[in-house]
Design a protein around this nucleic acid. Structure first.
Lengths: 202, 202
DNA sequence: ACTTGACTTGACCGACCGGTCTAATATACT
DNA sequence: AGTATATTAGACCGGTCGGTCAAGTCAAGT
C-alpha cells in the first residue's frame, strides 16, 4: 500500500524542491524530513547519506526533464531550429512561473548544483556532467537534422551543441542573478546565432 | 606598520581563495582565520559578519579583475574583436593554471557565488549583479567600437554584450563541471558568433 | 502462532557553525 | 607619563549539522 505517496517519493520531491529553490548546503536533512513529514530514521533507511539523496534528486529531475518539456521541445515533428526556440520558451515560462510562486528565480537545478558541489564532490560532479552530456546530445541531433534538410550551413555540430547548452546555462545564470526571467526571453533566442565551424586540418 | 601584510588583507586574500576554490557555505570563518593566522576576535573586528566579508571579497576580486586582465583584454590598443579573443584566452590560462595548482577548475568566483547565494541573500545578489553589469558594459564598448570601424554589421550592442557575458559564464560553468579548461579554449572563440539584432519597431 | 525483514520513531552523538565577549596588548596622541 | 584607541587573543555561546542507534510497529510468509 502506498502510505499516501511512498515515503521515499515524498522525501525525493521535497528535497528536489528545496535544493532547487535554495542550495545543497543550505538545506538540511532535518528540514527536508519535517517538510516531507518523515522522521530522520526513515530518511536514513532510504538514503544512506545526503550525497545519495542528491544523486537520486539529480536522476529524478533528469528523468522528469527528459520525459517532460525536453521531450516536447525536441519532438521530431518540430522543425529542428524551432526546437531551440521551444526550449528557450520552456525555460522562460518555467522560471517565470517559479518566480511568481517563490518570489525568486531558482535557475537550473543542474547548473546550480554543478557550480556548488563540483569542486567538492567528484561523484556528484560526474553525475551532473553526464546530465549535461545528455542534454548536449539532444542539441546535437537537432543540429544534424537541420544541416541535413539544409536549414543551416554545415558546422561542427557536437561543439556547437555544447556551446548552445553553455549559452543556455549562462543566460539562466545571468537571469537568476538579475532575478528576472525576462532575460531568458530577450537573450535566449540568440542561441540560434551560435556557430562553431569544423576544425581545419593542420 | 604592516603586520606583515595587514591583517585585514590577509583575511581577505584567504577568504577569496577559499570561496573561489570551494564555496561560500563550505568555508567557515574558523578555517579562514587559521589559514590567515588570525584570531576570531580580530576577524570580527574587521568584518561585522560573514556576509560583509563576502561583499568585501566580491569588491576586491572585482577591482583586481577590472585592473588586471580585463583591463588588458579591453585595452583600446587592441582591435575590438581581438579583445574578445583575449578575454577568452585569459580565462583559459587562468583556469588552467588554477587547475594545475589545486587539481580542480574553480570556475568564475562571481558565477559560483551568484548561483549559490542569490536566492538567499538579496544584498549579495545585487552586488554580484552589479559586477556583471560592469563586465557587460565592457563588452558593449568593444562592440560599439567594432561597429563604428566597420568590423561587424550593426546590431543591438547592449543585448549582444550581455549575451556574450552569459555565454562566457556558461562556458566556464560547463568547463568546471567537466573539470577541463580545454572546454574554454574549444568553445570560447564562438563568443564572436553571437548576434542579437536591433528590435524591430512594432 | 511464529518468524522475518521492511519500515518508523525519536532520542542522541560529536563536530562544527556564525557570532559574542572580556581581557590583554600594542600604538598614537597629548 | 598618561590616556585613549585600535587591535588581538581565545574562551565561550546557543544552535544546527549529518549521521547513529536501540526500540519498536506492522504486514507478509511459513
Amino acid at each position: 500500500m502506498n502510505s499516501e505517496l511512498d515515503t521515499r517519493e515524498r522525501i525525493l520531491a521535497t528535497a528536489r524542491e528545496l535544493f532547487h529553490g535554495r542550495s545543497y548546503a543550505d538545506v538540511g536533512i532535518k528540514e527536508i524530513c519535517s517538510l516531507a513529514n518523515v522522521q530522520k530514521g526513515s530518511f536514513y533507511h532510504f538514503f544512506p547519506s545526503k550525497q545519495d539523496l542528491a544523486m537520486a534528486v539529480i536522476d529524478n529531475m533528469s528523468d522528469d526533464w527528459a520525459n517532460g518539456f525536453v521531450a516536447e521541445a525536441f519532438d521530431e515533428a518540430l522543425a529542428p531550429i524551432e526546437r531551440l526556440d521551444y526550449m528557450v520558451d520552456a525555460v522562460y515560462y518555467w522560471q517565470k512561473a517559479a518566480k511568481s510562486v517563490e518570489g525568486r528565480m531558482p535557475g537550473c537545478l543542474f547548473g546550480n548544483l554543478a557550480l556548488e558541489v563540483s569542486t567538492r564532490d567528484e561523484v556528484l560532479r560526474a553525475r551532473l556532467n553526464a546530465v549535461f552530456d545528455k542534454a548536449s546530445s539532444r542539441f546535437n541531433e537537432a543540429l544534424e537534422e537541420a544541416i541535413e534538410i539544409g536549414d543551416i550551413l554545415p558546422l561542427d555540430t557536437k561543439a556547437t551543441a555544447t556551446a548552445m547548452l553553455a549559452y543556455l546555462e549562462g543566460v539562466i545564470l545571468l537571469a537568476k542573478t538579475r532575478n528576472d526571467p525576462e532575460v531568458v526571453r530577450s537573450l535566449g533566442p540568440a542561441i540560434k546565432s551560435i556557430r562553431i565551424e569544423h576544425k581545419h586540418k593542420n
